[in-house]
Design a protein around this nucleic acid. Structure first.
Lengths: 237, 237
DNA sequence: GTTTTAAAAAATCTCGAGAAAATGTATTGA
DNA sequence: TCAATACATTTTCTCGAGATTTTTTAAAAC
């Protein structure tokens, strides 16, 4: 299981520096909605909360611009990136295009080790689904879901496609979290994942890509159906 | 002509802050090869050259990570992103996929104003091609070439596709510059651009996408043909 | 001659304080 | 009452100096 998509990815390595630590904490708080969309990010206030200096926090915020989770404008400081249904639709469509292509290439290139990784990731995800009741297990499920999707396309040789997809996945996860405060998941995600696994193992690229595309689109529709007010409706350009 | 692809894009606006100014100068020096691939970027040394403080320069370098022009590793500072033929091949393939799709959507959605912008951009590019002899005009041509490609896909409604393409274009430009120190352009770029314009104006999406794909691939092959030593061969993972 | 160990040098990373800019508030005038 | 101006507060932006970590250099041991 490869650890990173593109050079200097601060993906899963241990935080060796305070900048990286602040970067991760900020990213988590934005994705999980504790820092709502559009919120002003005052350095003087945040540096105390995250226990770092002003310069260090500014650097962490600069890093988050790469993930499009933070925006900055001239001399007016930083803000949490705004959200909108239009943006989510764009993210979804772009993700369907890239992830379908990546899956096709992955199915074409994947070897036995890939099949093994895929089975293992699916198994771990299933186990997390079985005993998922409380909110405590949600983090675990989110992580394993992410890894399952990552392993699916891991045999795709294009680092750039995987890099872009990791950004889009992160964005989509933020929308999912923002809506999931009250909304339970109605659809049978497990069945979709299982069908996806089966198609991938059978090396049926067309079938797998179709299922994956539908899988991503369904996630979009379940969020789209939620009234806009529930999305912590910030501004939306 | 829209000015930016995604929020907080430091694209063409005036540099209002020292961080932004340093960011631009650094980006230019990396793309144009003055800071060669793999080069160590020592903050203490660079802060004098760019006339800013250490913290400011660090922030500018953090911004450049978003463009994948700079990489950082833990406690070992910053480096100019390495180059390799494999990476360029990846960039090219990904760009062909995204830019073809963007062009199709742009042709489908573009209105009269878009056609006008396209004609204007082509005209400015042609004028720059006519009297392109010295190296001084190269900058002008590069800029107008970038704008032509940008206008081509400007009617594509997906901000994310355009955002990713702007990153990939920047990457491709760096490779082009690195190889163009000695290599002149043998192929008839003007004719390709003209065919592209015509197909776009005729709203022939298939034809336009095919020409564009071939156009991008040809650029890759002309660089690929260059011996690796000429690419300032740094390390290449 | 090679490897290991240890000190010295360099570079990164971090912080707090000062200058520039933007935002908010109150006062003045019509 | 409303608009415009001037002042005060807040916040961003910037810099230089100090603490860790990495890298280099040199000596010592095998």
């Amino acid at each position: 299981m490869s650890k990173s998509t593109l050079a200097a990815d601060t993906g899963t390595a241990e935080p060796k520096t305070l900048v990286e630590s602040a970067y991760r904490n900020l990213r988590r708080d934005i994705i999980e909605g504790r820092l709502p969309p559009g919120e002003k990010l005052r350095v003087e206030h945040l540096k105390d909360h995250y226990g770092v200096g002003a310069g260090t926090l500014r650097e962490a915020l600069s890093l988050l611009i790469a993930d499009a989770l933070v925006v900055s404008q001239g001399q007016r400081g930083f803000r949490v990136a705004p959200v909108s249904i239009e943006d989510l639709a764009d993210i979804t469509r772009t993700r369907v295009m890239l992830e379908s292509e990546a899956l096709r290439q992955s199915i074409a290139m994947g070897d036995d080790a890939w099949e093994g990784d895929l089975l293992a990731a699916f198994h771990r995800l299933s186990k997390a689904e079985e005993k998922r009741i409380g909110i405590d297990d949600r983090e675990e499920w989110e992580e394993r879901n992410r890894i399952f999707h990552e392993v699916l396309i891991s045999a795709c040789p294009s680092r750039w496609i995987k890099h872009f997809l990791s950004i889009l996945y992160q964005q989509a996860e933020r929308y999912r979290r923002l809506s999931l405060f009250l909304q339970p998941i109605p659809r049978d995600v497990h069945a979709e994942h299982e069908a996806l696994l089966q198609a991938a193992m059978e090396r049926d690229a067309d079938k797998a890509a179709a299922i994956l595309g539908e899988h991503i689109m369904l996630t979009f529709r379940s969020i789209e159906a939620i009234p806009r007010e529930q999305l912590n409706h910030p501004l939306a350009a």
